[in-house]
Amino acid sequence: MRRLVGAGGALLLATVVIAAIGVGFSAQSYSAPIPVLKATPVGTDGTCGKQAPRVHLAIGAYPDSSGVDDQGNAVHPGGNPDWPAFGPSNEYSVPAGSCVTMTVTQYDSGELLNNAYFGKVAGTIGNKIHIESSGTNVSHCAEEPGAPATFAGDVTELQPCEIGHTFTMRPLPGVSPGFFLNVPLPVAGNYSGENVGNTKDFPHQTVTFSFLAGPKGSYSWNCEFPCGHGVASFGAVMGAYGYMSGYLHVI
């Protein structure tokens, strides 16, 4: 009996200790509790090629994750001043089967893609995106510094030197296989990193595109522009969950 109580007590104690460590890991896992950005339908239309509930998602790609956006909200709670981030959240949720129109306002500069493949639009309705430029945006393509970038309107592809970030998304294993979304976001401000900031006072690019959300399940997105440090510039911010990566939950 004493043995049973002792062994049971030891098991209980170990369970409590391990569970406590587990809760700790889980809590720090998603670095900061960022509320999921939830999109609700605003009617039904045929934007996505068939009648589907329409939802809107508006996010931004900011050069300074420790700063605030236009609304005065922190871009990324506990952000790092050297690191860019997507905001106001990196997790989004949309209803299954809805037609999602995303607006990504891009405030960050950029230089060259590692792989020109990520300059090509994929997976959006019409395989195109719509770009509205604001302010003077100078890409790395410009031979003479100061020459404005020319992209605007509907585009299907951007040059590897015109890109600041990308929004690249694929399903989690087993969820609607074959889905692949790639949206290049053109450089804002100056590619050298000057004249960029988190608000509309700075040059920015507004990119709009639509895609049809599949059946229920989660999708993982990340940025494919090498905006980190180290090997292939994919270290630091690129390897830290939540800044340049996240999920879209189709519910």
Binding site: R170, P173, P177, S220, A240
Partner: peptide, 21 residues
């Protein structure tokens, strides 16, 4: 038919999602 193409060498953050059809 169809099957999955995977990444079989740990490649960082989103290794688990690096697959296609």
């Amino acid at each position: 038919g169809k099957f999955v193409v995977r990444c079989s060498q740990l490649c960082g953050l989103n290794h688990a999602y690096m697959y296609t059809e």
